[in-house]
Design a protein around this nucleic acid. Structure first.
Length: 454
RNA sequence: GCCCAGGUAGUGUAGUGGCCUAUCAUGUCGGCCUGUCACGCCGACGACUCGGAUUCGAAUUCCGACCUGGGCGCCA
């Protein structure tokens, strides 16, 4: 077990105190200030600048970069020897005196008494961590562990982590129960997308496209409010900057709620994510250099589907009519018009899944919604059908056989409460929040049409 | 799945039939340099995806394969 790191007193940091075997007490780079007297810092060699009698090493860890300054005539000979043989991206421990100095980055530099090579790096490197030359995404993903050493890249995943934490906190505060549902499933019950078939002993199985049906079963179980953040799998052969074959879905389902309530919940959650990132991740936002980062304003507009069509139609070359799904061009045209986050509501029943609730007074329209960012769809949700007979009819209306939906339909026969929910794409949320050009930037190890390793 | 654009040192690039013994940057190695911060300067090293064709001659043209990026479709 790794204990929490205790606060380190500057008097003790020169001493290695093994907390547990194999773990070394060390000082993070961000905690080294101009007032720090001495420090023992372990990190990666980001850059070496050897000026002859004077050399600089930029030492990098997760928290920042520290300049190590080596006046060769004033430091031990062993230090000079070590510096001479150092390769970039090696792991070293530097122990020495901290000097406050204006012209050093961060106003301080470390003058070493001792440098220990912890783990040498080979060269050449598969890509340049210091970003003097750019690398293409393909090259970066092949060497993702090195790519992620770049502060800009690390910042994306620190922010993504912060977003996931906010989602948990936000939902726990509202008494949601965190559930985990199977990713190996028997059949393609939901429809709409291609599934990955897998061999499951002597049976055929699939990777799940969404936890939708399981969420609803736990509503039937009386869990009231459930959520799951987990992987979803889509076997579509798409080749775009906003699709993944393995994505992370933030899925929520709420009992005794209608579509308006869960839309408000979704809006509040998205804003909370932005707000927490703005508050807690200013250095990461700066590292990403996304000037346009902004917390969305509350009160996301509700755009009716039919009005969305009216906005898109005159702007498009291709004709678009009521009842059509929104093409990429249509999505973009509407996004430009709206300019910020918005909902598209009141979708035609026929282009939404069978579990979306039709309006009682107008069954051709459903209580379904999409949450849109001007660049792409982030989430879709609906008030769900909770009446068994209506659900059977809707399944049949989609050309499917309700008799094949036994395990799904059964809960609807034994006291299913009214409920509503949504699924929010975690990668799309991060991609749009940070202005990333490609959704793969928001995934450590993306799975797309061609990439299966690493 | 359809369409478009590509594949040149470790990385990112220039090069549209002979001036290519292939450009530049970065990197690596060697040398010089005590305040760099994309350190600078000198020198060296290192590449045309694969197969076939055209041609006196192919990195360059053509065909095929493989790989990559992007747009569309599908999809969230």
């Amino acid at each position: 077990m790794i204990p929490a790191v205790p606060p380190v007193s500057h008097k003790t940091i020169m001493v290695y105190v093994p907390i547990v075997p194999g773990f070394i007490m060390r000082t993070s780079i961000a905690s080294v200030t101009p007032d720090t007297p001495t420090a023992a810092v372990t990190g990666w060699v980001h850059e070496i600048r050897d000026l002859g009698g004077l050399a600089f090493i930029l030492l990098r860890d997760r928290t920042g970069i520290l300049q190590v300054t080596i006046p060769k005539k004033k430091v031990p000979e062993a230090v000079v020897e070590t510096v001479r043989s150092l390769s970039k991206e090696s792991v070293i421990t530097v122990e020495g005196t901290v000097k406050a100095i204006e012209k050093a980055p961060g106003g301080r530099e470390l003058v070493p008494e001792r440098i220990t090579l912890v783990s040498a790096s080979e060269s050449p490197l598969p890509l340049d961590v210091a970003e003097k030359v750019q690398a293409e995404l393909d090259t970066r993903l092949d060497a993702r562990f090195l790519d992620a050493r770049r502060p800009r890249v690390a910042a994306i995943f620190q922010i993504r982590s912060r977003v996931q934490r906010t989602v948990h906190e936000f939902l726990y505060e509202r008494e949601f129960i965190n559930i985990t549902t199977p990713k190996i499933v028997a059949a393609a019950t939901e429809g709409g997308t291609e599934l990955f078939p897998i061999a499951y002993f002597e049976k055929e199985a699939f990777l799940n496209q969404s936890p939708q049906l399981y969420k609803q079963m736990m509503i039937a179980a009386g869990f009231d409010r459930v959520f799951e953040i987990g992987p979803i799998f889509r076997a579509e052969e798409h080749n775009t900057t906003k699709h993944l074959n393995e994505a992370t879905s933030i899925d929520v389902e709420v009992s005794f709620a209608g579509h308006e309530e869960v839309m408000q919940l979704l809006e509040d959650l998205v804003i909370a994510c932005y707000r927490d990132v703005e508050r807690d991740c200013p250095t990461q936002i700066a590292a990403i250099e996304y000037e346009a980062f902004a917390v969305p304003k509350p009160g996301f507009k509700r755009l009716q589907y039919k009005d969305a069509i009216d906005i898109a139609a005159p702007k498009l070359d291709e004709p678009i009519a009521y009842g059509d799904d929104l093409s990429t061009a249509a999505e973009r045209a509407i996004g430009e018009e709206m300019g910020e986050h918005y909902f598209i509501v009141d979708w035609p029943t026929e282009i939404k899944p069978y579990y979306a609730m039709p309006y009682e007074d107008n069954p051709a329209v459903s209580k379904a919604f999409d949450l849109m960012h001007p660049r792409m769809e982030l989430s879709s949700g609906a008030e769900r059908v909770h009446q068994h007979d209506l659900l059977r009819r809707q399944i049949a209306a989609k050309g499917l056989n309700p008799d094949n939906f036994g395990f799904y339909l059964s809960p609807f026969r034994y006291g299913m409460p009214p409920h509503a929910g949504w699924g929010l794409g975690a990668e799309r949320l991060v991609t749009t929040m940070l202005g990333l050009q490609n959704i793969r930037e928001a995934v450590l190890f993306p799975r797309d049409r061609h990439r299966l390793v690493p």
